[in-house]
């Protein structure tokens, strides 16, 4: 599959009074049309920072960005990191779109739903205001909002959280983008509404043949919808693989730890959760060597104290399965079985 987006060595840092915050560090991944890539990580892992950089939504004054994010457009490849702000702006909404975590605050409170969607449509289409509203109504219908003709004139505060997220999706898709970045799209929603929205995203992906990047901390949501997964920790990708490999053959101690630390509604036997001890390092003073070392229970098995001195590379240990760890495959197999993972 030819990728639509190719992110190469993307690094984003923010200079602050306390020092340089290395929010995202040497991140590379690809995603093709029709494919869903999940970027998983905890807060501060760099998952949102990376996607905002792809969208060109960081202020160039406050962020230092290097690397590439190449969109393979019909007109030829284009790097959104090195392109001018104006050129990137003209890609937003049309070639790449984004929806956000909190649909409560992501819509302008003073404008009607129809106005906000029509505004996005009018950017890339010629037509009257009435045409825009008509198009907005169609989009509302498409994303499953009842009585779209009436609701198109209403304001965000008149919608529930789930309905607002549908509106956000309608607005993001109004110009038929090739890439949709969904940043924690269901985190603020109730679980019954979450499953509606996840289904809607899947349907829309098929309808528009989009590449989807799903940013989330929820390994349950990832398991439902993703084709491939990047696991991020302290600004770096620590593991990247096909969905089943991540869940059934995790290769990085952090991924193994995460999977064992979450309670599961489908497992009724009262097992004790295997918590990962400690907490993520500060992004201002990252430790030498592997950022996960202080929380890793296997680092003593690596000879010569390499975990403390040498940052592991993201190695392709099996085809399509990358992991940033010094442990050998035999040691990892033992780690997996020790941790009780399947």
């Amino acid at each position: 599959m030819k990728p639509f987006l190719e992110v190469k060595n993307l690094t984003v840092s923010f200079p602050t009074e306390d020092g340089l915050v290395r929010a995202s560090n040497d991140v590379s991944f690809t995603v093709a049309r029709g494919e869903t890539l999940a970027v998983v990580g905890e807060s501060g892992s760099g998952k949102s920072v990376t996607s905002l950089a792809v969208m060109g939504l960081h202020s160039r004054r406050s962020a230092n960005i290097s690397g590439q994010a190449i969109l393979h457009l019909p007109t030829g490849p284009m790097d959104t990191i090195s392109a001018t702000p104006e050129a990137v702006r003209k890609l937003r909404g049309k070639s790449m779109a984004m929806i956000f975590q909190d649909p409560m605050s992501a819509l302008h409170p003073y404008y009607s739903i129809g106005d906000q969607i029509a505004e996005a449509w009018a950017l890339y289409n010629k037509g009257s205001k009435a045409d825009g509203i008509r198009r907005a109504t169609e989009m509302l219908e498409l994303v499953g909002i009842p009585e779209p003709g009436k609701r198109v004139r209403e304001f965000p505060h008149q919608f529930s959280g789930g309905m607002r997220q549908r509106v956000m999706i309608a607005m993001a898709l109004v110009n038929n983008p090739s890439l949709l970045i969904a940043d924690e799209p269901t985190t603020a929603l109730d679980v019954t509404v979450q499953s509606q929205i996840l289904k809607l995203l899947k349907d829309m992906q098929k309808e528009f043949n989009m590449a989807v990047i799903l940013i989330t901390h929820d390994l349950g949501v990832v398991a439902e919808v993703a084709d491939r997964v990047c696991v991020m920790y302290a600004g770096k990708i620590v593991e990247q693989a096909e969905i089943n490999d991540i869940y059934y053959k995790p290769d990085h101690p952090y991924t193994i730890g995460l999977l064992n630390s979450i309670p599961r509604v489908d497992q009724l036997e009262g097992r004790r959760l295997q918590a990962i001890p400690g907490q993520p390092p500060s992004l201002i003073s990252l430790p030498k060597g592997c950022a996960f070392r202080s929380r890793c229970s296997f680092s003593e098995q690596v000879p010569d104290n390499r975990c403390a001195t040498e940052v592991p590379d993201l190695n392709e240990k099996l085809e399509g399965h990358f992991s940033r760890c010094h442990l050998t495959e035999t040691q990892l197999t033992r780690a997996r079985s020790l941790a009780g993972s399947k």
Binding site: M55, L57, R89, K90, L91, R92, G93, K94, A97, M98, F100, D102, S105, A106, L107, H108, P109, E119, A120, L123, Y124, M168, M171, A172
Partner: peptide
């Protein structure tokens, strides 16, 4: 957040 949304639209 809604200002970020406005930028994400391409305005």
């Amino acid at each position: 957040d809604y200002i970020r949304t406005a930028r994400a639209k391409g305005l």
